[in-house]
Computed example of a mutant assay.
Amino acid sequence: MLRGLYDWTLSLAARKSAEWWLAFIAFVESSVFLVPADVLYLPMALSRPDRAYRYALIATVASVLGGIAGWFIGHYAYEAVAKPVLEFYGKYDEFEALRTSSGIGFIVLMLITSGAAHLPPIKVVTILSGVIGVNLLLFIVLAIVARGGRFLLLAWLLRRYGEPIRDFIEKRLGLLAGAAAAILILLYFAAKYAL
């Protein structure tokens, strides 16, 4: 099922309506969808490098709007909407563990690492942010920084290095971003418990 969903998402890059699909997938990825917008963004930016920054802007705006929707789902519709979505993706237990142990500082860190490296998935963090009541303006600013930074970095890499960087991005960037996210998390805990 997941492979079919991935392949279908990838096929959207060849359509004339690809920008609308990119916006749609970036929006729903931030609140309920499993496949990251990168799956559509990368082939679109590689096929039209002159539009890489345009696509990055579309993905960023739609992702932030989707994150706001996720925040509202968590804040106002946790039991009715968020809980069934989390259970469907098998993320409910992870979510509950984060919910009981998270303060605002940790949510801020998770939003940045999730936006940059998908650790944990962005939909989990957006919903959690709404559930615990992270300030909406702070949430929006952090989402813009995290998601915009990710898509703009990809645009820059694709414009600068083109097709050869694609293999690196698809296979190793997630690992490098995950390592950076782990370092950020360790630094957060070190600072929290050292002070």
Rank of each mutant, 00 (worst) to 15 (best):
M1V: 04
M1I: 00
L2F: 00
G4C: 04
D7S: 04
L12N: 12
R15C: 07
R15P: 02
E19Y: 14
A26D: 14
V28G: 00
E29M: 07
F33T: 05
F33Y: 10
V35I: 15
V35E: 03
D38R: 06
P49C: 06
A59M: 05
S63E: 04
V64C: 06
F72H: 12
F72R: 06
F72C: 09
G74V: 04
G74I: 02
A80W: 15
A80E: 15
Y89I: 00
K91N: 14
D93R: 15
E94P: 14
A97N: 15
G103V: 03
G105F: 14
F106N: 00
M110T: 06
L111T: 01
I112Q: 06
A116H: 01
A116V: 03
A117D: 04
A117V: 02
A117T: 00
H118Y: 11
L119E: 09
L119T: 05
P121C: 02
K123V: 00
T126F: 03
L128G: 00
L136A: 14
L136P: 01
I140M: 07
V141S: 02
V141T: 07
L142T: 03
R150P: 15
F151M: 01
L154H: 04
L154N: 06
W156F: 14
L157W: 05
R159G: 12
G162R: 06
E163Q: 13
R166S: 05
I169E: 15
G174W: 09
A177R: 02
A182I: 12
I185L: 06
F189T: 13
K192C: 08
Y193H: 15
A194H: 13
L195T: 15
